[in-house]
Design a protein around this nucleic acid. Structure first.
Lengths: 221, 221
DNA sequence: AGTCATCTCACGGAAAACCGTGAGATGAAA
DNA sequence: TTTCATCTCACGGTTTTCCGTGAGATGACT
């Protein structure tokens, strides 16, 4: 007899949660362990150690904190939570983004019903799952490039950096401190700080080392 | 009429300083601006902004703080001081080490007399100078590899890292914080701190970013 | 005219990194 | 057996980074 797979569901539309629960309940291997209506609730729920789930079904658009932020939270805290993102957007950028944030599966709401059970079982085993429409989007976009082990080039993140942010990033890789940069660039320390912060946010890394590593990988050096 | 070149001399043997001064005084383009008997004195001297010199003649073996530490101090403070190292050791490692620390010239005490004036003038112009015996050592060792722009591969530094230090270094590149590392490695936070400190010292970088960059350059990743 | 991105700066607090120094324990090499 | 490197830990202090939040100024695009 197999072990049960425990699942937590997060979506701001109660009706959708109920739908998912209904579908999931048809499979006796899977059991729902609570649900959340906002990203904050998700984080709060998982922060209590008696509340754990093998898989989290996560909507991207939610009030208070959206799905991205929930993923960021897990990544930041180094919590290795298996997450399946449930989205109404079949946008490549979003898919890439959540992949970078460590999500293990992605299904669009269009055909969630037919995929959800399978997705949960697959992800619970430690594999990745993408509903076939998402898969085709991915493949099409990365023409020729096979989907590797969840590692996606994040060139598109690089594009989102402003001039000033790039300047700061470069200096950081040269071991400059904030004060030294402010001095060099003739800016207030606060300003440089602001750029650091937005770099950390945009590139979604934990600290200056993460920024440096990012810079290296994208040969900004 | 050319501008004068101001020189500061540091060596723990007064007699050697006097010798150098005597030699230098034969050239009216160069003028001595003070001397120091310990590394600490050097740092103290330069820390006063009325005390500046174009070129610092620096002995490696000195009490209180040796020449290495003086160079490290300049590098750390990002002071672009031109330094000629004066050493009794014609050891390759030492030459490489001081080159990495940003020194611009190296002459051995054996033939300091015939080289010192020329070395000072060369370095003052912004070029590098090595007495010919040092040059031959360098060339011999890096068989085939021409002396580049003062950038020397520091593989030998890498060798000096211990297992534990390497472990920590790797984790640092993965954006781990000290606390997280201590947790993961089952060590006290203090211990991990110790490794960080010795990494910073050994690799002679300013901060964690420097460590990460070093790791990348030497493909430790 | 209004929205938007970017650049600039501020402030206060929490966390982490950095620094210096000292020291016990162990095991290998001289 | 003594020296040496390495690994381990501690303590207290300073500096830097990180976080959150808010906001004015400018110029571009709608």
């Amino acid at each position: 007899m197999k072990e049960k797979i425990y699942v937590h569901v997060a979506d701001d539309h109660k009706i959708l949660i109920e739908g998912i629960i209904a579908v999931i309940n048809t499979d006796k291997e899977i059991e729902i362990k609570g649900y959340s209506l906002t990203g904050q609730e998700v984080i709060d729920w998982f922060s209590q150690k008696e509340n754990q789930a093998d898989v989290l079904i996560l909507d991207i658009t939610m009030p208070v904190l959206d799905g991205f932020q929930v993923l960021k939270h897990f990544k930041k805290k180094r919590i290795d939570q298996k997450v399946i993102v449930l989205s109404s957007y079949d946008d490549l950028k979003i898919v890439q983004e959540v992949l970078n944030l460590g999500c293990k599966g992605y299904i669009s709401k269009n055909n969630a019903g037919e995929h959800i059970v399978n997705a949960i079982k697959t992800v619970a085993k430690g594999e990745q799952y993408f509903s076939n429409d998402i898969q085709s989007i991915l493949l099409k976009s990365i023409s020729g490039q096979m989907v590797p082990q969840g590692e996606m080039p994040d060139k598109f993140l690089l594009d989102s950096l402003t001039e000033r942010e790039l300047d700061v990033l470069k200096l950081i890789t040269k071991e400059y401190s904030t004060i030294e940069m402010a001095d060099l660039m003739n800016l207030s320390v606060n300003t440089v700080e602001t750029y650091r912060k937005s770099l950390l946010k945009k590139l979604n890394v934990k600290n200056a080392v993460g920024l440096a590593m990012y810079a290296v990988k994208n040969n900004i050096v």
